[in-house]
Design a protein around this nucleic acid. Structure first.
Lengths: 349, 349
DNA sequence: GTTAGCACTCACATCATCCGAGTGCTAACA
DNA sequence: TGTTAGCACTCGGATGATGTGAGTGCTAAC
């Protein structure tokens, strides 16, 4: 049963007030701040009803109401109006995100830092998911006997490398030859189609004794696979301590302990990415109890997608208190994403 | 004027008690916990004297005494006894520090993580200082027109790379030739002797028009210099919130805000490294007000040095509350450093 | 030089009290 | 039937008085 119009107004007003004051809002202060044409008594009735429906709740009997997770959800899904950034804000963001650097990672990181600075919350990015990207080059460079550097160039100019062990007696020329062979047979293949078998079979005509190749094959394979590993970068954890939401020490502890487990957070953010083909402009939003990560039930996740070329995507977003100004934050993320994508495009031509 | 024996005992006992209880220690509880042969009244006299000399202080009139920074300093310099780690502890540390990986950075990081886990404090490492290391290889790899990867191999097998812009029309062969030329003239040079002029002059006999080389020269030079940039890695910030020392929110905020400024901390830790040639076993210890970094005056820094080969050093250590068990922490750091150095040696042969 | 004794200090915990913003409910009103 | 005024009630939080106890410095005697 959808909410009637006045209930929507009331809920929206409660969320707005609570977000800006961080105090439970009562019927009387609601009247004072907003242009309701009815009396506080009527609002009390509406509020009682909204509470019965689960959209708002009371911290205790004699206090005002605060939005429940369901209330925030309703607000985000259908009540809030999107803010537009001012020209000044846009310029600030644009100038803050570095583009001079040729390293895409630096670029993404600066976008993430910008997000944290502008929202005052934790921001994050996930490293690009490369399994859809294809191999453009693979070189092996002898570093010293027994040690080589594998350099992998992927579509959109993403470069990864890894030091690997090789048999001690292999010479630089042999390594080059091997790497050329492997490169030739793998070039153009998407990363997720490259398996240990693919790599091995690419070398079966080599004049290096097969038994000796195993180690190299394996190392080259792990180097390729490692390029596709999932990393997360978090920025601005300390800023969360400024928020009243985490003003009690045990809450702050909980929060930071949870966030310090990078792997868990990365896994969760990754899960949020739904169906492969989707609208890039959309946001993944998780509020309060919707979050299945221990210790982050007072938070909300808002993430979206950035793109490198056509095949490679990653996530960028924020983790903030669920009591946040969703419209403001979303419009910030939206513009940062847009700017980031533009600048990535510029760099990768 | 050095402290007489009994004063040393008293100070030492006060530090020990305060560290373990986090409560100001009074004359009576001092008698109870330690085998003093004198009465509490005598201790009170000694304590009044120690206070006059600046080694201990009172939080307020009717409380016990706590060590001052000077008191901790005296304790660290001449009163404490070094702990030995148990066999079990040693084994735990040794097994916790990865050695399977060929990446030295991973190895150092795991040592740092171990430190944080075992002390419950923030641990840190500084990236290796490479200016003393010498260039062993320099390769430029064409990635796509206008873009190349510069790979630098330094002594002790340290590898760095950077993507650089190159003139669009240069071919892969030309790049290889250029990089061979540069490599030939720079190999064996310590990093801090490589300047823009050195790099440029290495190419003056090349058959590429000089004007066009400028960009490459500059990029190669920055790639080399960037390899020597100073990075810091901090681990375990969240653990500090568990400590009573930062049990008040504003203190916790202060602490985390200060620690979040990586650059400041890195600069400070770097400063702590004194004269170039020094005993590697030594520790840099800074206590409370001795620390010139804003917001960290309730902390102590304890850092030491790790080595990669003969030319390359870096720092590893902890930042904890100044009220810490110095002997325990130092022995942990000491053993971690030792283990780390051993494993680095094993990896680099 | 050491010690027992004692008056004094002061942070902290406990408890009682008060205040006020907010609620639900009832009865009257449009 | 929906709206409103009025009212009794709730309860968290602020305020203030009080008591407790660990600790101190000082003095005088050993």
């Amino acid at each position: 049963m959808p909410l009637d119009n006045r209930k929507k107004q009331v809920l929206s007003a409660i969320v707005d007030d609570y977000v800006s004051t961080y105090e439970p809002v009562g019927s009387k202060s609601l009247i004072e701040r907003h242009n309701f044409t009815v009396s506080s008594a009527t609002l009390r009735n509406e509020m009682a009803e909204l509470e019965r429906l689960g959209y708002i709740e009371k911290p205790h009997t004699s206090a005002g109401r605060i939005p429940s997770d369901l209330g925030y959800r309703e607000y985000v899904d259908s009540l809030m109006r999107y803010d537009d950034l001012s020209e000044g804000e846009r310029q600030e963001i644009e100038s803050r995100i570095l583009e001079s650097v040729d390293d895409i990672t630096e670029l993404i990181r600066s976008a993430t830092d910008t997000l944290s600075e502008r929202t005052g919350f934790v921001s994050l990015y996930m490293s690009p998911r490369l399994h859809k990207s294809f191999l453009k080059q693979l070189k092996m460079l002898m570093i010293e006997p027994g040690k080589a550097l594998v350099v992998i160039v992927l579509s959109a100019g993403v470069v990864k490398d890894k030091i690997v062990r090789i048999p001690n007696f292999l010479t630089g020329e042999q390594i080059m030859k091997i790497s050329d062979t492997v490169e030739q047979s793998l070039t153009g293949k998407p990363l997720d189609e490259i398996t240990l078998v693919t790599v091995a079979s690419s070398m079966k005509d080599s004049d290096i004794p097969e038994a000796l190749l195993n180690q190299i094959v394996y190392e080259a394979y792990t180097a390729i696979k490692q390029a596709d590993s999932l990393n997360i970068y978090l920025e601005g954890e300390n800023k969360m301590l400024q928020l009243p939401d985490f003003g009690e020490l045990h809450k702050a502890r909980n929060l930071l302990d949870s966030l310090s487990n990078d792997g868990m957070v990365a896994g969760y953010v990754n899960e949020l990415n739904p169906a492969e083909e989707r609208n890039d402009d959309s946001f993944m939003i998780r509020i309060g109890q919707e979050i299945t990560l221990d210790g982050l039930q007072d938070c909300s996740f808002i993430t979206t997608t950035y793109k490198i070329g056509d095949d490679i995507t990653g996530n960028i977003g924020i983790i903030g208190p669920k009591r946040m100004s969703y419209s403001k934050v979303i419009s910030q993320i939206n513009f940062v994403r847009k700017t980031l994508n533009d600048k990535i495009k510029k760099i990768t031509e």
